[in-house]
Design a protein around this nucleic acid. Sequence first.
DNA 1: CGGTATCCCGTCAGATACTG
DNA 2: CAGTATCTGACGGGATACCG
Lengths: 127, 127
Amino acid sequence: MTAAVSGWVGDGYDPQCPTRVLLDRVGDKWTVLVIGALADGPLRFTELRDRVGGVSGKVLTATLRALARDGLVIRTAYPQIPPRVEYSLTDLGRSLQTPLDVLRTWAEQHIAQVVAHREEFDEEHDQ
Amino acid sequence: MTAAVSGWVGDGYDPQCPTRVLLDRVGDKWTVLVIGALADGPLRFTELRDRVGGVSGKVLTATLRALARDGLVIRTAYPQIPPRVEYSLTDLGRSLQTPLDVLRTWAEQHIAQVVAHREEFDEEHDQ
DNA sequence: CGGTATCCCGTCAGATACTG
DNA sequence: CAGTATCTGACGGGATACCG
């Protein structure tokens, strides 16, 4: 978390803290999936839902709306019948992929240790 | 999210996916604060609670337990009266600080844009 | 097609009270 | 001091049904 004065921990759970804002978005269940799905180019609503897999329409709508609100994604509606809506990453959205890649790399290299530790911990701590 | 075969989006919300596992932990409300607080060295339970600020004892306990289970934090209890318990980062926990720093840097550089975009968006979309 | 509206339920944070 | 136990309300997410 960004420090308020010194060190790392500023004022606890401050909704204004940049890191907090980012974490609240990135921590969202579907945000990272959606950004990843859009990495290769624009997608329509249904394509996006199919690619992400497991997400309901309602929740995908909410996720996309939040991303659009944050300026990470652009929604483009073509006035046609039937409707055609495309979603694409903004430059800001694309710039987020770098930190996400760093996270992903860490995960790929270290999650095995985490999982192993979990099993060990669980064996010790119950029956 | 780590890909199952190719591209970025693997199998949707797979609890086994390394990136998912990491995000589920990092996305937690207090995890990053606690890791940040422990960056400078070990802390006792109460010190930690005071530093993080706003976290209840129950929730801090749960957060610490999860971090200990994942092997990111070590809990050391000294058999004294009154009890003395210290928490410190493991090497694994410390290694996580690098990706978190990258995230924080991105946040510090770009969140202003996000917030500005939010206000703009909100103005357009209601009353 | 691309949503919105509605209902429902599980999870979880917060507050409070208590214990070794 | 460092927790645990319990109750509570808020919220997020899924399922379903419907609309322009």
